[in-house]
Amino acid sequence: MTEVLLAFWDGAFGSVYAVLSATLVRATPLLFVGLAVALAFRAGVLNIGAEGQLIVGAIGASAVALAIPAWPRPVVIVLMLVAGAVAGGLWAGIAAVLRRRFHVLEVISTLMLNFVAAALIGWVVRGPLQEPTRVYPMSESFSAAARWPFLVPGQRLHLGFVLGLVTAAVLWYVLQHTAAGFRVRAVGAGARAAASAGAVPVARVASRAFLASGMLAGLAGASEVGGVTWALYEGISPGYGYTAIAVALLARLDPRWVIVTAIGFGALEAGGAAMQRSAGVPAVAVQIVTAAVLLSVLALSRWRARDRDEASA
């Protein structure tokens, strides 16, 4: 048992390498998708399609990286980010339009679009973006210009992590200190009051938050292909978009806490992988622990909310 926990600890925090090349690298996409889910949920939009939006964002960023391999590196990186965000936003946009025009529940449409995105990337890596030999279901490796810089020499932590931290700070500021962010929070916390007392265009605000959420998830995809894989693979995400829901909920939808929970889940993934390698414990064990923790925390917070409501009633 001790051996297992030691292996877990070593894999997650045990060394500089574990932190900078495993935990934080895995935390990076979780940070972006966690923020994406937090933003949507704050607006009362149950976007559980971060997974699909991440995948489509990865496709968009890869298409740019492969199209302009010889352009200056900063330009390529910026365009990859733009492409990732736009692609993720468009993917969320499908569900946003269905929600606003036809009242299709976004829980269903975004979940369905995750499967469509999985099928789409399967086709892309065997079709338009397949490597030239046409043997492997993956794209050509990116040129040096499209490979994002590492933050620490010899470690795998890349530019995406810093961008994620900046994004969290910006999102927190927008939600807490701008009129647009206040409207998002008001729509999520009390749509009827926002419309009746504040003349807030509820449907428009929710739709825009939905699009922005998709864009954030798309950034996760861009960051993965630019910072980690340097090529587009079918299995680009091991379910980051689903873990994101836990990341966001545990952070109580606060962007500042998303940084903490994203790193926490990054550590769980890194430690779980190490545990499997050196102690032979299946990584599924980590998922079981994760799920148990999440359920307990959510039950506890519900319970507290109920106590509070009863106390005030």
């Binding site: 701008t178 009129a179 206040f182 409207r183 008001a186 009390g190 009051a193 007392a197 504040g198 005030s312």
Partner: peptide, 27 residues
């Protein structure tokens, strides 16, 4: 509690709520 105020918001936020639709920029 449904049409005039947001129970989870502070009194300050509920004050701002009345202007929410017209507000621009920073609060």
């Amino acid at each position: 509690l449904h049409d005039a105020v947001i129970p989870a918001f502070s009194l300050t936020e509920n004050t701002t709520l009345a202007e929410a639709g017209a507000l621009r920029g920073r609060v």
